[in-house]
């Protein structure tokens, strides 16, 4: 087990290096002079030269990259162009808000997805199965911002049950969390259904039925346990989409998270904030994938051998 953990951690390092290269290049791939971009449109030649010096843009590119990584590792992302506060100060609580939203959405997706997937498998090829399948297809195909806006109209504007925007109480979390988690719930439901149908077809399940267990018991004790493995993988993979989808959901509901910060920082050309936020989300994603792998190893004893 120990070797397995160490190996997975080592495997995550190249991904992190890749992410750091991509984020680093964000500044340099911008057409024109990055110093000019950073200094802003009204900067004088002297200003631009100063920026170039202070950002180290006059150094060889490899040296610049190593410098960037060195600072990033110690949590130094520079200062926001707009507010003058350090980037870490700016994004800290925003990050927590995004994690809260993504976590809640994942929880919603897992619970709803597994329950509806099990219902589908238990009633396969019957009305309930078909209804859930059609709903899940719509859940995958409907754009999140549309779902969010419809939920807003129904539950906030028309019924007045839930608050419209912001994040002052747990009630504020409900609509964004459903919006963000819906597509994932649909995907989990489909994977769960397919695997459970497959599992329920196997010999040991027939044996369980033969020894007189009830349908409910067979599904929960024998089927579900074995069908859960691929669901864990999907949950891990979907976390990345969730973090990306958070950008849209946060914009719809004015949720003060990293995603909304990125959109705001882009319109104000605040590149350090964009870089740091993208890097933070990517690192979070890599860590989640790592945890998924480790969880996989813990749940399925066969993985250790591989």
């Amino acid at each position: 087990m120990f070797h397995f953990i160490i190996r997975r951690i080592i495997f995550a390092i190249p991904a992190l290096i890749g992410v750091s290269i991509v984020v680093f290049l964000m500044l340099h791939a911008t057409p024109g002079d990055p110093a000019q971009v950073v200094a802003g449109p009204e900067a004088t030649a002297a200003d631009i030269e100063n920026v170039r010096k202070s950002l180290g843009l006059d150094r060889p590119i490899v040296e610049q990259y190593l410098h960037f990584v060195g600072r990033a590792v110690t949590g130094d992302f520079g200062v926001s162009f707009k507010t003058g506060r350090t980037v870490v100060e700016e994004i800290g609580h925003r990050y927590l808000n995004t994690l809260q939203l993504a976590g809640a959405a994942m929880l919603f997706a897992v619970v709803v997805g597994i329950v509806s997937g099990v219902l589908c498998a238990a009633f396969k090829y019957r009305a309930l199965d078909n209804i859930i399948l059609v709903l899940s297809l719509i859940g995958i195909s409907a754009p999140a911002f549309f779902v969010g806006l419809v939920l807003m109209i129904v539950f906030s504007v028309q019924l007045g049950w839930l608050p419209l925007t912001g994040n002052d109480s747990w009630l504020h979390l409900i609509l964004p969390c459903v919006t963000l988690g819906l597509a994932n719930a649909a995907i989990i439901a489909r994977v769960m259904r397919a695997r459970l149908i497959e599992t329920l077809d196997s010999d040991y399940v027939r044996t369980a039925y033969a020894k007189g267990l009830s349908g409910f018991r067979v599904i929960t004790r024998h089927g579900l346990r074995n069908a859960l493995m691929p669901v864990i993988t999907v949950v891990g993979l979907q976390m990345g989409y969730l973090l990306g989808g958070a950008v849209i959901t946060e914009t719809v509901f004015s949720w003060p998270g990293l995603g909304r910060l990125i959109i705001q920082s882009i319109s104000s050309r605040d590149l350090p904030l964009v870089q740091a936020s993208v890097l933070l989300i990517a690192v979070t994603f890599v860590i989640i994938n790592l945890l998924t792998d480790l969880l996989y190893g813990l749940v399925d004893p066969r993985v250790e051998v591989a």
């Binding site: 190249p14 991904a15 890749g18 991509v22 990345g240 973090l243 989808g245 950008v247 959109i263």
Partner: peptide, 23 residues
């Protein structure tokens, strides 16, 4: 594959947003 791992580690929509912000 290392570069691809890095690209995969950034949610697609975010990468697209960053790209459009630049270009």
């Amino acid at each position: 594959m290392r570069i691809m791992d890095g690209l995969m580690a950034i949610p697609g929509i975010l990468l697209a947003i960053a790209f459009l912000a630049m270009f």
